[in-house]
Lab assay of single mutants.
Amino acid sequence: KRPMNAFMVWARIHRPALAKANPAANNAEISVQLGLEWNKLSEEQKKPYYDEAQKIKEKHREEFPGW
């Protein structure tokens, strides 16, 4: 399985609240909304998620060399 990128790290945190706020929305609609919200963030706001994604990527590389 591929390691999460910065957007996926961010979305994992924000998806539950968005789903709760929009109970009639299906998963595809929630994903679209998450994408729109992510694109509104500044690079500075995204930086912690890029940092976390890098850590996940490095850990994945250690656990699965050659993947």
Rank of each mutant, 00 (worst) to 15 (best):
K1Q: 13
K1R: 09
K1D: 12
K1C: 03
R2M: 12
P3W: 06
P3E: 14
M4Y: 08
N5L: 01
A6C: 00
F7I: 01
M8Q: 14
M8L: 08
M8P: 05
V9H: 05
V9T: 06
W10Y: 15
A11K: 02
R12D: 13
R12A: 08
R12S: 11
R12T: 13
I13V: 10
I13N: 09
H14Y: 05
H14S: 08
R15F: 08
R15M: 07
R15H: 02
A17Y: 07
A17Q: 05
L18W: 09
L18E: 02
L18G: 01
L18V: 13
A19C: 09
K20R: 13
K20P: 01
K20G: 05
K20V: 06
A21W: 02
A21K: 12
N22W: 06
A25D: 04
A25Y: 08
N26P: 04
A28T: 10
A28P: 03
A28G: 09
E29C: 01
E29F: 03
I30N: 00
I30Q: 04
I30A: 02
I30M: 07
I30V: 10
S31I: 05
S31A: 13
S31R: 11
S31V: 08
S31C: 12
V32C: 07
V32I: 11
V32P: 02
V32G: 10
V32Y: 14
Q33W: 06
Q33S: 06
L34M: 06
L34K: 02
L34G: 00
G35L: 13
G35K: 15
G35T: 14
L36V: 14
L36P: 01
L36S: 07
L36I: 09
L36A: 11
E37N: 04
E37F: 06
W38R: 01
W38D: 06
W38F: 01
W38A: 00
N39L: 04
N39R: 10
N39M: 15
N39C: 05
K40C: 05
L41C: 01
L41A: 00
L41R: 00
L41H: 00
S42F: 00
E43G: 05
E44F: 02
Q45T: 01
K46A: 02
K46M: 01
K47Y: 00
K47L: 08
Y49I: 01
Y49H: 02
Y50R: 12
Y50W: 04
Y50N: 03
Y50F: 10
D51P: 04
D51Q: 10
D51V: 10
D51S: 08
D51T: 09
E52G: 04
A53L: 06
A53E: 08
A53C: 07
Q54W: 06
K55W: 05
K55Q: 11
I56M: 14
K57G: 14
E58A: 11
E58D: 13
K59D: 13
K59H: 12
K59M: 10
K59L: 12
H60Q: 15
H60W: 04
R61G: 11
R61E: 08
R61D: 11
E63D: 08
F64L: 15
F64N: 11
F64V: 12
P65A: 10
P65N: 07
P65R: 12
P65C: 13
P65F: 09
G66T: 13
G66H: 07
G66K: 13
W67C: 13
